[in-house]
């Protein structure tokens, strides 16, 4: 109980993060609004290529420091085809709320869904967006 009260107090007191990185969002970035924070995703190279490796620069914006979700997995699949990529992206934490996912490759044209799995306060959460690879 005391631990829960402490956590609740922390959530109220601590600032949102990371303000500077999230103020100047590149036009080409994909912004996904979640219920408790915003995800800003930038591909490298841009735009997302078909059948060639690419990376994602991923930032969490407007998340409270104490509940800052931890990105644990990035993946993609084709809903209509019912299969995913042939590759497992690797994830590197660059800074608080700032990640880089390497090794993504969309090997077929069509609609893909990118999924970003988070853990925050031991609660799992997923944000996603769809992309038409051509």
């Amino acid at each position: 109980m005391r631990r829960a009260l402490f956590l609740a107090a922390t959530l109220l007191v601590l600032p949102v993060l990371p303000a500077a990185a999230c103020e100047q969002i590149p036009i080409a970035a994909r912004v996904i609004e979640g219920p408790r924070f915003k995800l800003v995703v930038l591909s490298d190279p841009m735009p997302i290529p078909l059948n060639a490796p690419f990376a994602f620069d991923i930032r969490l914006c407007d998340a409270r420091m104490a509940e800052l979700p931890r990105l644990v997995r990035v993946d993609a699949w084709m809903p209509a085809h019912r299969h995913g990529m042939n590759y497992a992206p690797s994830l590197t934490k660059l800074d608080w709320g700032h990640y880089r996912a390497e090794g993504l490759l969309l090997h077929m044209p069509g609609e893909w869904e990118f999924a970003f799995d988070f853990i925050a306060l031991e609660r799992e959460e997923q944000l996603s967006f769809r992309f038409d690879a051509q």
Partner: peptide, 15 residues
């Protein structure tokens, strides 16, 4: 080189 990336990330799956 970029050609290394798929080798590093390819994974064996049941399918």
């Amino acid at each position: 080189s970029a050609a290394v990336i798929p080798v590093r990330h390819v994974v064996q799956q049941h399918r």
